[in-house]
Structure formats: structure tokens, C-alpha cells
Design a protein around this nucleic acid. Structure first.
Lengths: 238, 238
DNA sequence: ATTGCAAAGTTGGGGCTCCAGCCGTCATCG
DNA sequence: CGATGACGGCTGGAGCCCCAACTTTGCAAT
């Protein structure tokens, strides 16, 4: 705008425009630091900063040794961690710190993908998937519903495999390059109210998470957490 | 964790701990770049990066020429902009770009603060405040309810003054040093459903915004925007 | 006592450089 | 023909430096 706009902004705005208008589609490589300095006639510092800003906005993702790429869902801000309103600790850590027992409930019977999951995994609706369900419990009451879906060949067998999706898929030769999370609050569905034993009017936080290997979604999960006890808050990795 | 943790993390973790455990209260000054390099025996680059990361987490705020300070609400992530799900433009810009008429509806009759607003402004409940209400309309239907409260002496008189809170208060010798926003989605209250003519089951986005001058809150506002058309998303300034 | 001003300190933008560790590719060797 | 290893490119961490713009402070002059 002004006569003396920061130099790095020129780079940021140009690349941002190319991503939002589709010139650079999801997965497309962004020029490297060295290339940017030549292309925009800026110093390396400005080029680095521009890349960091774009990564902070969730438009691109940097992969060490490889380069920067347009994220699969540049429209969704990456979630770094979220917090309870009256609790400084991140949610996952919070569960542990309160000494709540976590039980694993794994369903190995294959299920049909269905329209929602099929769209997220780019598969035909009739594809048979493995459904893994974790139910976190504390004081005997369910605290969270988490269901993940993946191809049967990736199904976990040991408890260790159940713990880390990334490590398990890596063992199958599938390398997770990106995790996309979409978070919002909403009214719980009847089935969720039932399962979580919710009082009327209580909201839930809904997290949709998809693991990508390159341009291919390979695993997706839904987490439903009851509560008006927190607000969704984001903290960006810098 | 590992043997070779980044240097800047030591600084980040130490300051973060001091903020979360109350050693550094809201408003407290953070050591400057030069002081950090001496105190932690790190380079200036590491010190700067540490400050940037903490600012990115919403724990501290940098003021040019003055220094870095603990934010008044380090528990709330600062909102940079938010987006529609199916719209790349930020919300405010979006309204303008769609050519929607914005009407100003300013109530000069003083109102009592009441418990919620009084707590946010740290005033007695009986304090008489000026209530300024903006109602954005498009196609004749209300699009957004925004109500802001402030001391009567700061009341706006011209349309220009109504536009910028920061500029108006500055004219009164009150300098805004920080803006704290808390955002969440929820079920609309009956009065809001009425005013915004909402269908049953439609959620609203609720933004609570407070302007701070030093350690004193001087103006606060509530914005209620209807819609399941968007998700709350944050993009941190880096 | 009040005003004005200069000096010192601080942030944010920017430049340059070096290096470890990682990734891909390509050529060479068994 | 397949495996191995070397090499170049890339990111992220880190160091040092310079400067403009801004704030704060303290001193000096009115």
C-alpha cells in the first residue's frame, strides 16, 4: 500500500494470489529460497520470511530436504494445539494429567466407506474399510468418541501400531507428508448424545483429521469431544 | 528432548513457563533481544526467533520502540483473520466486496454496564456506558449484530469517529496497546434469533473484543454473526 | 514547574553467511 | 540387473551486522 512496503510482502502476496486463484494447485512445488531470491530480486532473508509467513497461514508446507509445497487443503488453517478455557494445558496432555484411564476399543470387522468418508478418502462408497474406534473414559464415563477409517491392508494389529498412524503406514511403505485438520463446534447428533451421555444443550467439538501421502488421502478420523468447557483455539507452528 | 534441541527452544520454554505459572503476570515486560542474548548466552537470531514464536502463540506482544510484554489474556489466541469455508476472502472484506450496505445505528442514551460488560471493563455494574450498535444489512436482512460499550466521555460524535475505535480513543489521550479477541460458535439466544431472523438450528459466531490501554480495558464489543457457512479459523501474524 | 529536545534503547525489516541433516537422482560397482 | 553410494539441492537453525522508525527517559532551558 504505502510507498515503503516490506519487500517480503511482495513475494507473499504474489504466491498467495497464485494459490487462491488456482495457478498453484494443491501439492504444487513452491520455488526454493535460492530461486525466490533470483525471481523477485530480494535477499535470502526476505525469501525465507515470505515462506515462513505463507506456512504460518497454512497455505504451504515445508519439507526438509525436499522443498515447500502447496498444502492439500490451503483453505483450512492447520491446528497446532487447542486448549481448555480454564486450563493452560493442551487437550491431549490434559486427559493424561488428570489420571484418566484410556481404553482402546478396536473394531476389526470391515465397514462400507459411505459417502462422507468415501469423499474424504477419494474412494468408491462401497469400499470396505477398517474402522478403529478409540473411546477415552474417565470415572467410567465416556469422554470422547474417536473413529478412524483406513484401507484394510493398513489395519493395526499390535497396540503399538494402534498408537501411531504415521509410524504404522510408514512400515507399509506409505509416507505421511501432511495432516489436515478441520475443527468446529456443533450440536451433537442423537447417537453422540446417547453414547456420550450428554445433557441437552451441551455442545461438542468436532475434529476431522485426514492423513495425506503426497496427493493421496490414506487415513481419516473423526473425534467428537463434549463440552462448552473450552473454546477452539489455535496456535500456529512458526 | 533430544541431545541437540534447537537453542531458541530453551528461551521459549523458559519464558512460556514463567508466563503460565504467573512469574510474569499480564503486562510484564519481557527482556529485550540484547538482554536475552546475554541472559541465555544465545545469538541475536535465536533470541529474535524465540520472541517471534512466543508472539505467535499469543503469549506476548511486541511494541516497536518499547519492548515485548505479556499479553493481557495470554490464554486467548489472538485472531488475525477468519474465513468463510467456501470463500477465500476474509470476512470483513467479503462483506464489502459483495456490495452490501452497512448502516450505523448509534444509541447515545447511556446504559448500565451490567455484570458481563462490567467484568470485562473492570467497572462497577452501575457504571453508565455509551452503547454503540452497528447493524450490517444486505438485501434488507440483518447480517450481523455488533454492540460496543465504552465510557460516556469516549462516545463518538462524527461518522469518522464511529469508524475507528483506536483513532477516537487516541484523540482522547488513551492509547490502545492491545486488542484481545475471544471467538467461539454457539446456539443463538432467542433475542438474537429474532433480530437476525434465523432458522432453527442455525449457529452463530460470537466475537468478544476488548481494547486495552496498558493494563486497563477501555472498550469492549460483542459481534454476533449467523451461519454454519463458515468455520472459525485463525491465521497468526508472523 | 513546565516545556522541549536530544540521547539511548528497542522493535521490525533486511542482508549475508555457514552448517547439519534430509531427499532425490544418477552413476558406478558387484 | 540390482544395490550402493556419492553429490547437489533444499530446509531449518544459528550467527553477526546495519538501519529506520519509534518510545522512553532524563536533562536543559524557558
Amino acid at each position: 500500500m504505502a510507498t515503503s512496503d516490506p519487500v517480503y510482502l511482495r513475494v507473499v502476496e504474489d504466491i498467495r494470489r497464485q494459490i487462491t486463484d488456482g495457478t498453484l494447485p494443491p501439492g504444487a512445488p513452491i520455488p526454493s529460497r535460492a530461486q525466490l531470491t533470483r525471481k523477485y530480486q530480494v535477499g535470502e532473508t526476505a525469501a525465507r520470511h515470505a515462506l515462513r509467513v505463507l506456512a504460518g497461514e497454512g497455505l504451504i508446507i515445508g519439507r526438509v530436504g525436499s522443498g515447500h509445497y502447496v498444502r492439500q487443503r490451503p483453505d483450512l488453517t492447520p491446528l497446532h494445539r487447542w486448549r481448555f478455557l480454564d486450563h493452560p494445558a493442551p487437550f491431549a496432555a490434559d486427559l493424561q494429567s488428570q489420571g484418566r484411564r484410556v481404553t482402546w476399543d478396536w473394531h476389526s470387522e470391515p465397514v462400507e466407506a459411505g459417502p462422507v468418508i468415501a469423499r474424504r478418502l477419494r474412494l468408491p462408497e462401497s469400499t470396505m474399510l477398517t474402522r478403529t474406534r478409540y473411546v477415552y473414559r474417565g470415572d467410567g464415563k465416556p469422554l470422547q468418541l474417536a473413529t478412524s477409517y483406513e484401507l484394510r491392508e493398513f489395519a493395526p494389529h499390535t497396540d503399538d501400531e494402534r498408537r501411531s498412524v504415521v509410524a504404522r503406514l510408514y512400515a507399509h511403505g506409505v509416507k505421511i507428508t501432511e495432516i489436515v485438520e478441520s475443527v468446529h463446534t456443533r450440536v451433537p447428533r442423537p447417537a453422540e448424545s446417547d453414547a456420550l451421555d450428554l445433557a441437552a444443550g451441551v455442545h461438542v467439538l468436532h475434529v476431522e483429521r485426514t492423513h495425506w501421502a503426497g496427493d493421496r488421502p490414506v487415513e481419516t478420523s473423526d473425534i467428537v469431544i463434549p463440552g462448552d468447557r473450552f473454546r477452539v483455539m489455535y496456535s500456529m507452528p512458526v
